[in-house]
Amino acid sequence: MNSFPPSRTTNLRNEISNFQQRFDESFHEAWDRYKDLLHACAHHGFTELHQLDTFYNALNPADQDSLNSAAGGNLLERMKSSDGNSSSSDIAKLTHVVNQQTSVVTTAMTAILKQFQATSPLASVKAVKEICVTCGGAHPYY
């Protein structure tokens, strides 16, 4: 008995093919979610090149620019520069760039968070104690 019905495979393949980075989703979160989809349907049948192409096209323009910068040029053009006959070493390099960019973004976000947490409040307000100038008691002097 097959525990993974064809309809489930079709649904997961569609989710992978139609993957889109969410508006409020970071590059790192999108990459993790995409990898989770691929792992959920390990028999999806998509080549690594197809997977990278789908993920790249799903990203917002700012994250595409970051990937292009990390890749040293347009990532899609580099992936397709061999007329679709990219070698496995080319794909491995591009996969590494995506993973490296994820690491860079995560490291930067962690550093920013630590800096934010270490920053003291802009101004510390001291409690004003009302002290009598005549007797020094804890009441205002009128």
Rank of each mutant, 00 (worst) to 15 (best):
H43Q: 15
L75Y: 02
S86F: 01
A42L: 06
Q64V: 07
A30Q: 00
D53Y: 00
G136P: 01
V104C: 03
S82K: 15
I112A: 14
K114P: 00
F4P: 00
Q100E: 13
Q21T: 04
S87H: 08
A127E: 13
A30S: 12
E29A: 13
E15N: 14
S7W: 12
Q21E: 06
A111I: 14
V128D: 07
S86P: 02
K93P: 01
T10W: 07
T119N: 10
F4G: 08
T10M: 10
D32C: 12
T47C: 01
E15Q: 15
K114H: 10
H139Q: 09
S17F: 01
Q101H: 13
A123F: 13
C132T: 03
A62W: 07
V128N: 09
A71D: 02
A108D: 15
Q115F: 08
S17H: 08
L52T: 00
T106G: 04
K114Q: 12
N60C: 11
D83T: 08
T110F: 10
M109Y: 07
H44W: 01
E77A: 09
D32G: 10
S7F: 11
G137C: 02
P5C: 07
N74P: 01
H96T: 11
P140T: 03
S86W: 00
D24N: 15
S7M: 09
K93A: 12
A138R: 06
T102W: 00
I91P: 01
R13Q: 15
A40I: 05
H96F: 10
A108G: 08
I91E: 02
L49G: 08
I131R: 04
A40T: 09
E48R: 09
